[in-house]
Write a protein that binds this DNA or RNA. Structure first.
Lengths: 177, 177
DNA sequence: AAATTGCGTCAATAGTACTGACATATTCCC
DNA sequence: GGGAATATGTCAGTACTATTGACGCAATTT
């Protein structure tokens, strides 16, 4: 089946373009943007012996204090076993604590400690700086359109995960500005 | 030094907000958007026994036909040894060919084959569809502002890597001659 | 009482990355 | 010409993140 003839190995010397209406420009920009976006916290995490997995857990536990292990697995889309090691390390280092669920005592509600909150903020700070700078650089007054675009990039079924977050929903939920 | 007292493990029950001016909304949206953005090609790659690493190599070899191994390593920011396995598989399956450099015969110029070109397109198609849909959904007529934002998110020193690409400006570049 | 659920853990495996070391061919430079 | 530097390939060892499968325990549900 596989064509091993020399012809099949002829090199194509022209660059792929936006033929077929494929948006390579944004595809590639998205790759580079995300690569650099995650590189900031990666540097900090290395000091703790943590990886990106720890960051994600820390982030969501801070964003939705009291979420259960099952809920966390659902958001991260990883397996229980993958989470286990990472979560254990974060608990052992007092970044996260588990509390028995009030209604269902089988559940473990996850909360950040002061230390976990501090680390989450430290990790988010350079990312936020980068975003702010990008919004200014690009002259994008329209922060809202960036937000809408990113949200529209998420699978519709999964958009629920986003809206769980407090801030966003009622446009201006008290608390900050 | 580590405070192991009970006080240090007190749970924080309030969600982290945009306190300190941290832009959690976009941080999180970026995470979800990229997660789903990469999930499309991941599905296709699985059929070939390939992973995300193969996708990246394939993409850049198609984008910049004739780039050398060293240049590819620089763009991907991985080590030679990491690239080796992936590249070997792509060559063995006739997705990519190596040609001896014309000026410097130590160099190996990398080119896609017809098959490699086809796979790159197949992988990009769903991503491009998602982008197109997101631009329409979000009513963002201003595709340019999304592009500017993403570009501004990239480390300035590394923006050169982006601009190497032909397409963008004179829609009809010939790659080489 | 029995079945189910939420969580934790053990064992085995895989994919992707890393560092270090070394071989080969080629080119550069004195 | 000959040595140094360069471009690539490869071998060995390690680490991290992820996977699946299986099992145990406690609590809840039926």
């Amino acid at each position: 089946m596989t064509d091993r003839s020399p012809a099949a190995r002829k090199p194509i010397r022209t660059a792929i373009t936006d033929e077929d209406g494929i948006d390579f420009a944004i595809i590639e920009l998205f790759f580079f943007a995300y690569r650099d976006f995650t590189s900031d916290p990666d540097q900090i995490l290395a000091d703790y012996g943590f990886g990106r997995a720890h960051h994600r857990v820390l982030h969501f536990v801070n964003r939705r204090p009291g979420l259960t292990v099952a809920e966390l697995l659902d958001v991260l889309k990883i397996t229980k076993q993958s989470l286990a090691r990472v979560l254990k390390q974060l608990i052992d280092t007092d970044h996260i604590v588990q509390l028995q669920g009030p209604r269902d005592r089988r559940q473990r509600e996850l909360y950040p400690t002061a230390r976990g909150r501090a680390l989450a903020l430290a990790l988010a700070r350079p990312q936020s700086r980068r975003i702010r700078a990008a919004l200014e650089d690009s002259g994008t007054n329209e922060r809202a359109s960036i937000e809408r675009f990113l949200e529209a990039m998420v699978n519709p079924e999964l958009r629920a995960q986003i809206d769980i977050v407090p801030a966003k929903i009622s446009g201006k939920s008290h608390g900050d500005h």
